[in-house]
Design a protein around this nucleic acid. Structure first.
Lengths: 231, 231
DNA sequence: TCGCGCCAAAGGTATGACTTATTCAAGACG
DNA sequence: CGTCTTGAATAAGTCATACCTTTGGCGCGA
């Protein structure tokens, strides 16, 4: 868990409960209730609630209590919120949202990377592309996933845009979830691997158009698989 | 300020100070120091620090204190972080990042909106397009800005993607900043207004390609103006 | 029936005591 | 002389309590 100490424990309970809808919009908590329920002091409860409040999952008002806010107010870009939603009943909706976001962002990031990638980025991408090819052939899904995550994170980072770069972890979470969930029986598709090589090559060659196009094919493909899987 | 009470006051001081680099990476604060500096109790200081910690602007360690974290760790999608950076020395970098993000996201959102917009969304977009035309002609920059923000927010919302929808406020902040900063002397460009009409029309007509293309022209145009202005 | 004012409930703040982790340095031992 | 151990000082973390402030709702009276 990202947040440390006792407040972290509370968050680890309350966050997922809210994200999954178990604590529905409008539900009201009271500080005292949480104190006894978790056997901690007011200090701890208040700090945890403050954090939930800063994510806009809850709002606290005098004489009323701590109220769970409607979904549309949630800070859906907060990494913890994303993780909590991915872990619960909201998982399909969250995956769809993230899928669309990837379709929008990753091709743009690839294009920028083709313009701004450093020699080191380029080396890393080439190396990762090779690893992807090898591990795919060997049907080593664990290693493949690790390199796949690193590949996408590297492209996002190489774009030079800090906001894109920060989506690396989130994309990683999506990829991890996909592998775990489908428990992919067969090895990754050769075509997808080929596209990753194409992206790496285009970026290293400084060809934004090609990089963008190849990346777009990757993420729209992922989006379609996702749509098929979720119905 | 988004966060209420005394902790909000602290955040309003500390957030911008960190975002602007005034409190540089590695700078150390102590709770007691903040207590006396702001004349508040530990409770308040701790809650404020917890929030900064959840944004990853600082990390707090025993026997060390509260340390300002390196930029790359910051939660750059947090609305408050964005606002603080826009208000300070990081403004150009933040604008560039947001510009790229808009170029990536808004065309995709427009395409999705063309598929999923409700009749109400469509009505609103058409109405806003008219308002844009009128206020542009009248050179009423305040009203124009208000409608421009509403227009982009509506497109993002109509995409049906909650994550896109949440970027509405941020885009609004960028547009506001642009108007205030340049203190636009002349009326908005007729060409840009025309493009907004085109977007509204394409969305209402259910034409994703056209909507996406028109929106892309708008945001890349904005990006170029931005690049020109920032050098 | 409507409006005004009072009260109680719940969060917000302040404070002091105590706990725990961590760094740094002094001292012991090889 | 260097390294390892141990201990003390420091600063955050937690707890319990008291008190302040806001505000929603109830009851009283017009």
């Amino acid at each position: 868990m990202e947040i440390q100490g006792l407040p972290g424990k509370l968050l680890a309970e309350l966050g997922p409960a809210i994200a999954s809808g178990e604590l529905a919009e409008g539900a009201v908590l009271r500080i005292e209730e949480l104190e006894t329920r978790f056997g901690v002091s007011r200090t701890v409860v208040r700090e945890a609630v403050r954090i939930l409040e800063s994510m806009r999952l809850v709002a606290s008002k005098r004489r009323v209590g701590i109220t769970v806010q409607p979904r549309r107010d949630w800070d859906v870009f907060d990494p913890l919120v994303i993780r909590w939603r991915l872990a619960g009943a909201d998982r399909p909706a969250q995956l769809r949202s993230l899928g669309s976001l990837r379709v929008a962002v990753e091709p743009a990031a690839a294009a920028l990377a083709a313009q701004y990638a450093s020699p080191d980025d380029c080396r890393e991408l080439s190396s990762l592309a090779v690893e992807l090819t090898v591990t795919a052939r060997a049907a080593d899904l664990t290693a493949f996933l690790r390199h796949d995550i690193a590949f996408h994170a590297t492209v996002l980072r190489a774009s030079g845009n800090e906001m894109f770069a920060h989506l690396g972890d989130t994309v990683g979470a999506v990829l991890t979830g996909r592998t775990e969930h489908k428990l992919m029986p067969h090895q990754p598709r050769a075509y997808a691997v080929q596209l990753h090589r194409e992206v790496a090559e285009a970026i290293c060659a400084g060809a934004p158009e090609r990089a963008e196009q190849a990346m777009r094919t990757i993420v729209t493909g992922a989006m379609q698989e996702l749509a098929a899987e979720l119905g």
